[in-house]
Write a protein that binds this DNA or RNA. Structure first.
Lengths: 256, 256
DNA sequence: TCAGGTTATCGACTATGAGTCGAAAACTAG
DNA sequence: CTAGTTTTCGACTCATAGTCGATAACCTGA
């Protein structure tokens, strides 16, 4: 691979091109999936690629990725978009030098956005043959999501506006790749004041069962959960009234 | 500022240039400082800028920032280097479109690398007038350092090979911006197995006092501290299939 | 040599948040 | 009403972090 460098790029001082790409993730049917389109033309004909394209000459990075994404999916359904990293390997593109800035996009579960013919969702655990270095970029996106679920409220971007704890558990376990306890998830997210009950309930399942309460995220923009940094500042002064169990008002529990 | 866009950039489809920049941080005299050089020529003559420069035509991003840094500081003294983010605002450079990929570099305390005439260290809390958007990039670098100190072993990049807990406390509090308890720091880093005693001690201070034990970091490459992710996988006991099965055997899918 | 001052280390205690488990609640179907 | 199902919640345990004070190990000066 490195051997190809010297012969492949004729113009050493040519300004490299710049493209933007996006790893768009969604939990679909309980499985974390990524939006890919299949290339119809060389290079990498037939392989699957991330949505994206070359940066416009007067276009900022963020607006550019939104514009490119609009060709593959309704951008309004994106619940989150953040920059991932930038890759400049000389040989990452076979024809010419292209620097790529990758983004991570998220779509709430239960949505099924219209996509073009060449575009489909693929479970991240069963990726098709990928073009360029896009497989590595997807891996970076998964990792970013996984880690941010721990110390931010990013769950809001995976979940629809209202959800039960069971559903939320499904989104988290799909994104994290391991089982998540519903009890613990609820307690943790309530304590962090990320979610709150809506007061309504979801209809019971086919076999009955207690109807699940519906919750929502208090905030649908990214916030880092404070209080989880280690080596905190010394005893934070009486700034915060010591968050007490926000869950229930005094007389909450039903009869006996 | 946005009003200037349309008149300033004549060639809408011109390929933008690409540069790399680095926020190089070091704790100097107990104060977190950043390496800056003063521009001798317009634009932004006299203002201070981050080390960096345009990306070579056959140069990867990482090698490029190392090459550019070599002009300002001995790169071999860098204890850490990682990509920060990429900025493509059309008007971030007054003359032409330049996309910048920023890096975060760290130099261990107690080193005093040779730097050119135009280059000096500046306490991050007293920044001089900055060129371009470099002030914002420095802020991003500080934040990255601060946050990674909490959940990685990045402290190794701030500290010299051997150090006392007191010294280490100084590096951490300078980088974090608040006091850090030596007792707690030692216990936390020992438990995470980030540091270990060398068996030697440092000479006592001018007023005597118990000589401090010397410690070192076990690993001088970045490692994320596991066990601090919230919502961990379920206590992985001895065996356990560990395989998630979205579809449950007994029940069917939710009713319709 | 010893008393007093200085700095580092360490153990004990407390606080907080997370993981586990099982009982009870609230439904459906027959 | 009973049996089966699913959700909710309290009580417990565990792990890690923050605080405080006692003790150790060194210095200087009388």
């Amino acid at each position: 691979m490195a051997a190809a460098r010297d012969v492949r790029h004729g113009k050493p001082d040519a300004t490299p091109g710049h493209e933007v790409l996006a790893v768009v993730l969604q939990v679909r049917g309980g499985v974390l999936s990524v939006l890919l389109w299949q290339r119809a033309r060389p290079p990498h004909r037939g392989k699957w690629a991330l949505p994206g394209g070359v940066l416009g000459g007067t276009e900022d990075l963020g607006p550019s990725i939104r514009r490119q994404l609009a060709a593959k999916v309704d951008v309004r359904e994106l619940s989150h978009l953040e920059q991932l990293d930038t890759r400049g390997q000389v040989d990452r593109h076979p024809d010419r030098r292209v620097i790529a800035t990758a983004y991570l996009g998220l779509v709430p579960a239960d949505l099924d956005p219209d996509v073009p013919q060449d575009t489909t969702w693929h479970p991240v655990d069963r990726m098709p043959p990928m073009a360029y270095d896009h497989a590595a970029i997807v891996a970076a996106g998964r990792e970013r999501l996984r880690s941010k679920l721990s110390y931010t409220n990013l769950g809001f971007a995976l979940a629809p506006p209202d959800f039960t704890i069971s559903q939320l558990r499904g989104y988290y376990s799909a994104a994290l790749g391991h089982e998540v306890s519903a009890t613990n998830l609820q307690r943790v997210l309530l304590r962090r004041r990320q979610i709150e009950p809506t007061g309504r309930t979801a209809p019971p399942g086919p076999y009955g069962g207690r109807p699940a309460e519906l919750f929502r995220f208090r905030e649908r923009r990214l916030e880092i959960t404070d209080g989880f940094a280690v080596l905190r500042p010394p005893t934070r002064p009486p700034d915060r009234p010591a968050v007490r169990d926000p869950g229930r008002p005094p007389g909450g529990t039903p009869r006996r």
